[in-house]
Design a protein around this nucleic acid. Structure first.
Length: 270
DNA sequence: GCCCAGGTATAAA
DNA sequence: TTTATACATGGG
């Protein structure tokens, strides 16, 4: 087996809050306080020891995970600023203060949110896990996300063991357009969010919500604010008169605090 | 059985 | 432009 690095850092974020709040579906808690997952073809085991976190990763991979968890950003400042906007948002931040906006791989985020439509977090996680197990390369104690090229070469029939239902054809269309260069991640990365929306929505099965989630979580376009009927109701009830633009560059982060808060307080806004 | 889940495609008004 | 419905699957 490959050599690993062990890096200990102060607990500047909460792995549980961050990994299971619906922005990624690639991690699991293998035992209390122990988290494992794969991103960008790299395996990570993360121990939450309260005051301290320990990251076990492939040799030389720590910079990747440092970027993945957005560790160079000061979330204290972001939270302080967002808290000033509304008492409700302040409450939402206090509910999950350990959330971070992950910098995920665009292709992985795109596929995950294609699979997320009309679906629940538990089953999305299962779908992503099966997708990697069936079509991805083994990496350490997990499986890497299959490449667009790999997925493109599959038929609908090949995808049937995934049990993705009507979403399977969407995955294949995404693989085709991304592998063929019809949708260029490099271009989306360099351009503004409005360009990215148009590009991503060329893909069958990518509507306004999936596009926004992909831009936010896959391209770190932090002003993006995934909005659906449910979130509209959350905003209208909890933050009347407030628009996503009021959150500025941290709209995506604000949205994630609100999502997790509202999701765990059914009835607050019904 | 029924309802729901980080929605979208499609048709119709 | 907005609204109604089908869609695959699995857990509660």
């Amino acid at each position: 087996m490959r050599r690993t690095d062990s890096v200990r850092i102060k607990a500047v974020f909460s792995p549980g809050q961050t990994l299971f709040c619906g922005q990624t579906f690639s991690f699991k808690e293998t035992s209390p306080g122990v988290y494992e997952g794969v991103s960008g073809g790299r395996f990570l085991r993360l121990y939450d020891r309260g005051e301290e976190l320990e990251l076990i990763c492939g040799e030389g991979d720590f910079p990747y995970w440092e970027n993945y968890f957005d560790l160079k950003e000061d979330y204290g400042a972001k939270k302080a600023e967002l808290s000033k906007i509304s008492p409700v948002l302040k409450e939402a931040i206090a509910y999950s203060p350990g959330i971070r906006l992950l910098r995920q791989e665009p292709w992985e985020a795109l596929c995950a949110f294609i699979l997320s439509q009309n679906n629940n977090i538990g089953r999305i996680t299962g779908l992503v896990s099966r997708l990697c197990q069936i079509f991805g390369e083994p990496v350490c104690e997990g499986y890497a996300f299959p490449s667009p090229q790999k997925l493109k070469s599959q038929s609908l029939e090949d995808l049937s063991p995934l049990r993705a239902g009507f979403r399977a054809k969407y995955l294949l269309d995404a693989a085709e357009k991304v592998a063929g260069g019809e949708v260029s991640f490099k271009d989306i990365d360099l351009a503004g969010a409005d360009f990215g929306r148009g590009e991503l929505r060329k893909i069958l099965g990518v509507g306004p919500k999936v596009a926004e989630c992909t831009l936010l979580f896959g391209f770190h376009k932090t002003e993006c604010f995934p909005m659906d009927v449910w979130m509209k109701r959350v905003m209208k009830t909890l933050l009347p008169g407030v628009t996503p633009e009021d959150f500025g560059e941290n709209a995506g982060l604000a949205q994630q605090y609100l999502y997790e808060y509202a999701r765990n307080h059914p009835g607050l806004f019904t």
